[in-house]
């Protein structure tokens, strides 16, 4: 037991700082194969479906505005078709978020994380910052290239990035997907189980909008635009849809959802035993 420790290798300034916690979360992110696979799957699905829907629309017999194939975009216009992979891709990136947080509870890793950073809130905030940062870095080019590829497939029917509202919708789609990842992470941290959090994601993004649309019209018109998926749709489309909020209002509501869920996750993290 002559060398239980070699103090030279532990720097004297060893203590917690914000950037260090972010770096730790980045190491955690990149060292899990499941995170990398889910991120790659999000990219591939978004791109493949966008190009596929664009090719479908490019077919001469289909008029713009025709209802989309199941799982596709809400409307088959050139913008909606090229970005139509968002409906499926959101479930993949939400799963990524859920795995990052709930996965720590499932394996017991959370106790290591919180013992190292006992004030706790930096752990979750850094994790969400890394998730959002990595997602945006990967998705901004993915969405942009998929849009451009889709318009190329559409040829004459295509629209340009410079057209009114198009750039905002394209960037908005990348932001929406990154935000849904954050939503998954918040739910994973709140519920602490992968299965429970995934169920809640599907419920919030797919089931609730369906149920709301079955309510009496006055009710569904009052609630529906404020659901996260429809708030997102408001800034991912060109605007003017009477059933949706304005792009600005939609963005505000979407951010409100994220703040509320992340806030609830932080409060629970601070209050409950790990």
């Amino acid at each position: 037991m002559t060398t239980t420790t070699a103090p030279t290798a532990v720097p004297t300034g060893a203590r917690i700082t914000g950037p260090r916690v972010v770096r730790a979360e980045w190491i955690k992110f990149r060292s899990l194969r499941s995170s990398l696979i889910m991120l790659a799957a999000t990219v591939v699905v978004f791109d493949a479906l966008g190009l596929g829907f664009s090719a479908f629309l490019a077919d001469a017999t289909i008029e713009p505005g025709t209802p989309a194939p199941p799982g596709g975009p809400s409307s088959l216009d050139p913008l909606g078709a090229s970005l139509g992979g968002v409906n499926l891709a959101q479930l993949l990136i939400a799963t990524l978020g859920v795995l990052l947080t709930a996965g720590e509870y499932a394996t017991g890793m959370i106790r290591t994380s919180l013992a190292a950073v006992p004030r706790r809130w930096p752990v979750l905030t850094a994790k969400i910052a890394v998730l959002a940062g990595v997602s945006l870095a990967v998705l901004l080019p993915t969405v942009l290239l998929t849009f451009l590829g889709g318009q190329a497939v559409l040829g004459d029917k295509g629209i340009a990035l410079g057209d009114d509202g198009v750039l905002r919708a394209v960037l908005g789609t990348a932001v929406y997907l990154a935000g849904i990842g954050v939503l998954g992470a918040a739910l994973g941290s709140l519920l602490r189980t992968t299965a429970g959090a995934l169920t809640s994601v599907v419920a919030l993004l797919l089931v609730v909008p369906g149920v709301v649309s079955l309510l009496p019209e006055s009710w569904s018109e009052a609630i529906s635009p404020y659901l996260p998926s429809n708030a997102g749709q408001a800034f991912m489309s060109l605007g003017g849809d009477p059933n949706l909020l304005s792009p600005q209002a939609g963005a505000a509501v979407f951010v409100g959802w994220l703040l509320a869920l992340v806030g609830a996750a932080l409060i629970r993290l601070l209050r409950r035993d790990a």
């Binding site: 532990v10 203590r15 700082t17 260090r20 730790a24 190491i27 955690k28 017991g108 890793m109 106790r111």
Partner: peptide, 28 residues
């Protein structure tokens, strides 16, 4: 501390686990 229940993510290598843990304090 070594806790009773495993406190390691099963999908991560031992080295990456320790690197992430140390990174919170700037330990490399």
């Amino acid at each position: 501390a070594l806790l009773e229940a495993k406190a390691v993510h099963t999908g991560r290598s031992a080295r990456d686990h320790l690197l992430a843990l140390g990174a919170t304090h700037g330990i490399g």
